[in-house]
């Protein structure tokens, strides 16, 4: 394990709220508003952290586990990704499934926590979250399959690391398609606009926001931090797929991650300002489109 490999996740932990802030700022700028400062997320977290917690008497321990589990799973998944483009801190054959599984575990516990409140709104949000995830996960694994076939490695370290740089010279169209599909999926995983609107506050239409409605204080801070960490993490995966086209030394690759994440956040802002939110029935269609794009990339690669 190298120094840069260990620094990568720490860097991502530090900048995560800023990525969300930047996405919101880009959206504001494109819709003619000034918007909150990029660093607003940190202030919000600090404010929430100082507040007290209120637990409903109907909730059980599941409700209290959810925020911690959300942060923990996202943070664990971060260690699997080779953020410096060479090596990840934790790496073993098949860790791509562990990556998808950790995200799924976090979502699962969050959904359980939401159901635990007994609120009908939270139940609706939970059911939507699971429905969308059921479509998003096969598409995510299809994207990973594409990367596995392109690089010949079964570890994220290979799929997003040095072998990917070689794959770029041979199979660039497939990789562009994979990156595009991953971007579409990241919008769904992060509950951004075509799938869910993070700014809406109407319980009937929310997905992620409604599931965290009953959390307060530090718990809410943890959940918000977990959401931004997931955004930054999937953004980093998309950035790694693109950045691998030119092989860089680890330290430089780690530095490139920051402007890459800024571009990713700007991309989210552009999508959010240009596209209306899809109706709930249309969301699986978006996921199917992402899967079709990734599948086409895979076909191009296998031919």
């Amino acid at each position: 394990m190298t120094l840069t490999a260990a620094l990568g996740p720490l860097l991502l932990f530090a900048v995560a709220p800023a990525v969300t802030g930047l996405a919101n700022r880009a959206k504001s700028a494109l819709t003619g508003r000034r918007g909150a400062p990029v660093l607003q997320g940190y202030a919000d977290l600090a404010k929430l952290w100082r507040k007290g917690v209120v637990y409903s008497r109907t909730t059980t321990v599941l409700f209290r586990i959810a925020p911690v589990a959300a942060v923990a799973t996202a943070a664990l998944a971060t260690w699997l990704v080779p953020l410096d483009g060479v090596s990840a801190c934790v790496s073993f054959a098949g860790d791509l499934v562990a990556f998808a599984g950790l995200l799924a575990l976090g979502r699962h516990l969050l959904v359980l926590g939401a159901l635990d409140t007994g609120s009908s709104f939270e139940g609706m949000g939970a059911s939507r979250e699971v429905t969308i995830a059921a479509f998003a996960e096969p598409a995510l694994l299809l994207c990973f399959t594409l990367l596995v076939v392109a690089t010949g490695g079964l570890r994220l370290q290979d799929m997003l690391g040095v072998p990917l740089a070689h794959a770029w010279s041979a199979a660039s169209p497939s990789l562009v398609l994979a990156a595009a599909a991953l971007f579409m999926l990241s919008l769904a995983e992060n509950c951004r606009v075509p799938v869910d609107d993070p700014l809406t506050h109407l319980e009937l239409t929310m997905i992620h926001e409604v599931m965290i409605l009953d959390h307060s204080g530090p718990d809410l801070a943890l959940l918000q931090y977990a959401a931004s960490l997931k955004t930054a993490l999937l953004g980093a995966v998309v950035v790694r797929v693109f950045a691998a086209c030119l092989p860089l030394p680890p330290a430089v690759a780690l530095a490139v991650l920051l402007p890459g994440l800024a571009l990713y956040a700007a991309g989210i802002g552009i999508v959010e300002s240009g596209v209306a939110r899809l109706r709930m029935q249309k969301v699986p269609q978006l996921m199917a489109a992402a899967a079709a794009v990734a599948g086409f990339g895979l076909i191009l690669l296998l031919r």
Binding site: P284, Q285, A288, A291, A292, G295, F296, I299, L302, R303
Partner: peptide
């Protein structure tokens, strides 16, 4: 449905390439 036609389209592409 749109989902099914997307899936069918992907199958068509796979068949064409094979």
């Amino acid at each position: 449905g749109f989902n099914m036609s997307l899936v069918l389209g992907a199958v068509a592409v796979a068949v064409a390439f094979s």
